[in-house]
């Protein structure tokens, strides 16, 4: 019999620093806050955006897995999170821009507690952060929601995926589910201050794994390109 318990990864961090760390692990109180927020978001999406999900059958039964999608709006993370059943949503972290969502103390607390977000430094993504996340996906196990374009696209058209996603999953058995978020750009493009009541739809694609891949730069680029194509292929013909 082996001992199964390890101290929290963020045990040595003061509360403010915890909210801003990719090592943050939520307890019962933060999970309750996250669950309450998620319930509100589901009601809002259904009422204001006539939110629908297609392809739920492609979701793996359990963690670990990664959701990747196109990114054109602040609504995207909410829409993807709402595609998960509550049981899985409790294990899901959204990777959010450290320079936007973790600037002030109040915003960082909101991002951590309500969104269950982990910060990503965008200018120069720290290799150590990605390594931590990679280990965490498998050990915890958890679900990551992320946008490999790295930013909200300004005109609604996709831009190339960054290789970071390859560093996360290359050479592992972790499933990656490509997703297309439809209507978020029309509802709330970058720069908009409030969402318009436009229809929102999430289309989930078939999961894929990258177990056999070489875990190096060329491998990461190939994974990013492959996922980018998989996400783009989900875009409905009439979609915006």
């Amino acid at each position: 019999m082996t001992w199964r318990f390890r101290p929290a990864r963020d045990l040595d961090l003061a509360p403010g620093a915890r909210f801003r760390s990719v090592r943050r692990e939520p307890g019962l109180l933060s999970l309750a806050a996250h669950a309450a927020w998620s319930a509100l978001v589901r009601v809002y999406l259904a009422a204001w955006h006539r939110y629908r999900v297609a392809g739920r059958e492609h979701l793996p039964a359990d963690a670990p897995f990664v959701l990747v999608a196109n990114h054109a709006s602040h609504l995207d993370a909410l829409a993807l999170g709402a595609a998960l059943p509550a049981r899985l949503a409790a294990r899901a972290y959204a990777l959010a821009a450290g320079d936007v969502f973790f600037e002030s103390d109040g915003l960082a607390a909101f991002a951590a507690l309500a969104l269950n977000a982990l910060p990503m430094r965008r200018r120069k993504v720290a290799a150590g952060d990605l390594k931590d996340l990679r280990a965490r996906l498998i050990e915890e196990p958890c679900i990551l929601v992320l946008f490999p374009e790295g930013t909200r696209v300004r005109d609604g058209r996709m831009i190339p995926f960054k290789p970071g996603i390859g560093m996360l999953v290359g050479g592992t058995a972790v499933a990656v589910v490509p997703c297309w978020i439809d209507g978020a750009f029309a509802a709330m493009p970058p720069g908009a201050t409030r969402p318009r009541p436009k229809r929102l739809r999430v289309i989930l694609g078939e999961p894929r794994t990258f177990a056999g891949r070489v875990n190096d730069k060329a491998g990461w680029m190939a994974i990013a390109a492959e996922l980018e194509a998989a996400v783009a292929a989900l875009k409905p013909v009439s979609g915006r």
Partner: peptide
């Protein structure tokens, strides 16, 4: 308890932790 659970790692066991609370 919160501190103990985070130090031991028991906080990852949601149901056990809820029972203790």
């Amino acid at each position: 308890y919160r501190e103990y659970a985070r130090a031991t790692g028991l906080f990852r066991e949601r149901l056990t932790s809820a029972c203790v609370a």
